[in-house]
Design a protein around this nucleic acid. Structure first.
Lengths: 334, 334
DNA sequence: GTAGGGCCCGGGAGCGCTTCCAATAACCCT
DNA sequence: AGGGTTATTGGAAGCGCTCCCGGGCCCTAC
């Protein structure tokens, strides 16, 4: 292990021959310090290798210098979805411009939720980003209870939080469905995501929108859970119930990948027999065979915007909720 | 936003009619407090909704109550690999048993590295887990410079850190190669991972071990980068250079998936024409067609063991480095 | 009867930093 | 030259908690 204790501000001040206050002003480059003293302090800092102690600073300023990203999901495996990795990456990108640290809280278990509670109540962080809420998620209620700004990533099912960033799920799904209709498909099914999430229901509604406009039968529906396995299972049920199906809009790329697998297993060709459209446009969409036509949502941007919004909240501003656009990416599967 | 300021320990003490010291003893359930006072304090805590301020506590105890998981990679996209998600999950599982928070540092950019430096020097965390080091990674050197315990996940290329958790990469890769040999394959190629990582070179050596024992030609090698795209590209080069190839051991599951894609594109069947073995046994191994025979490494366990080791280091113990076993998982691709 | 030897208990000194404040010093203008 | 700013200073009071210490008490043992 390492050498000695880190030097304190007092030691720096002593070495520079100034008061602690002056030294403090220098390292925070505040005003009211003569150039001479400023130089002296800076030299001392360099010589001693001084780094301010964030804990002490936090105690004095009442600002922790950290924010939490809380990912809520029922099944830990969900976290494996590259979707979350992209979110983290986006958040991180924005945070890197600041001095804020990122606290990651996986709030799947009740354990994790208790932990998040504790963090909020004890002001262990200056703000919170909350992702992926299911309908019954008790986390949703936490937002108002504490004196800490909370930004939602996606919306909880039955509430409109004060601050959130979301993607235009409904619009994107409608786009996808319209594309299939434009292709001449008429027996278009949908494999939804989890229906206890806003994203799941919104994407389903987008499908319903487009089908209604075209006057098509919107009843071919099976529920998935955003996962590959769930998509495959739903596709199998779909084929059994509606063998005439000639297109399917899936709740996510993983869902679509699963559907592709099931379709292949049942001897249907894609896009020949059945056209498939995903949602997300993650890297997986490129690795399927055929490559997925899908609805692009700016996942990285979603993370970035969440962080930005939180930052502006922390700065005392009043940002507006944000809904990011989605767009269709045409590839081989539809 | 929320209500008022959180109550302080002084307020709790006042309300309970005891000294602050006594109140402190109660919430840390230390000894030397009468049952009566204990009850009084506990009642006050409940009534006031008191939660100790971690910052103040950290300042007083010199223990931050947080550890960092630092993921180092050159390309942010690498983080998207579910491998990292599993690591995070494993670490989190172990940390959930404690009161420690998880600080996530993505040390890809020089920005991120500076940040990690800062964290170490300012004692913003009680310990560090460092993952995925490339050979030239400056992070590797940080371990000894600071008074903070550091556990490595995987080893850096040219150094044997004091504390690390790794998988038996060499042994696993040897197992895979032996399996192919046992299948009667004789023109076995290898697509390596990044050769500036320990995992990359160790897996290559495992292949060399097995080939040497069998007296086979080990020169059919192309370098990948653990990614799907890299695997596909390498496979294409392999086919051009060594059309006789009848098996390939890949540096990772993603690499194998890419190889599968390239093989299919070139009209080779798997495992008929060419057998393929991956490494990792992530979920992706189940989603390829055919499903991947692969070397299982306990990724989740790797995360868990890193956390455990760090915990024991923080507790002042002297754990030993740990190499986790790998094993062959037979599925359809070989 | 009294000298220990536990327990409780509260006072108070920090942990390392920020920041208010009163005291000086420097500077401007007319 | 003098009154009024405006800039620098260092002292000192916290931020909210932990923990060392010394003072009481009560019990036991001699």
């Amino acid at each position: 292990m390492g050498p000695k204790r880190q030097p304190t501000l007092d030691e720096v001040a002593a070495r520079a021959g100034v008061s602690r206050s002056a030294a403090s002003r220098v390292i925070n480059n505040a005003r009211h310090v003569s150039q001479a003293k400023r130089d002296a302090v800076e030299r001392a800092v360099a010589e001693l290798g001084f780094v301010p102690n964030p804990t002490a600073r936090a105690l004095a300023t009442q600002q922790v210098g950290a924010v939490v990203l809380a990912l809520s999901h029922h099944d830990p495996a969900q976290f494996t979805d590259p979707f979350f990795a992209q979110i983290v990456l986006g958040v991180n990108a924005e945070l890197e411009k600041t001095e804020l640290e990122l606290l990651l809280v996986l709030a799947d278990t009740t354990q994790g939720q208790a932990r998040l509670q504790r963090i909020l109540r004890s002001r262990r962080a200056d703000g919170v980003m909350l992702m992926a809420l299911h309908g019954d998620d008790p986390l949703a209620a936490l937002a108002d209870q504490h004196d800490v700004p909370v930004v939602f990533g996606g919306r909880p099912l039955h509430a409109e939080p004060r601050w959130y960033v979301d993607a235009d799920n409904r619009g994107g799904s409608r786009l996808a469905t319209e594309h299939l209709i434009g292709l001449g498909r008429r027996h278009i099914a949908v494999i939804t995501g989890q229906m206890d999430t806003e994203a799941g229901t919104a994407r389903h509604r987008g499908y319903l929108d487009a089908m209604a406009v075209a006057g098509l039968d919107p009843s071919r529906v099976e529920h998935g859970d955003f996962s590959e396995a769930g998509g495959a299972a739903a596709m199998t049920r779909l084929l059994a119930a509606y063998p005439e199906v000639d297109a399917v809009v899936a709740g996510s790329d993983a869902t679509a990948a699963g559907a592709l697998r099931a379709l292949k297993a049942h001897g249907r060709t894609v896009p020949g027999d059945v056209a498939v459209i995903g949602f997300d446009d993650l890297l997986t969409a490129l690795h399927t065979d055929p490559q997925l036509t899908t609805v692009h949502q700016p996942v990285h941007g979603l993370g970035r915007e969440m962080a930005k919004m939180l930052l502006s909240l922390i700065a005392g501003e009043e940002p507006h909720p944000l809904i990011l656009p989605t767009r269709l990416v045409r590839r081989a599967s539809a």
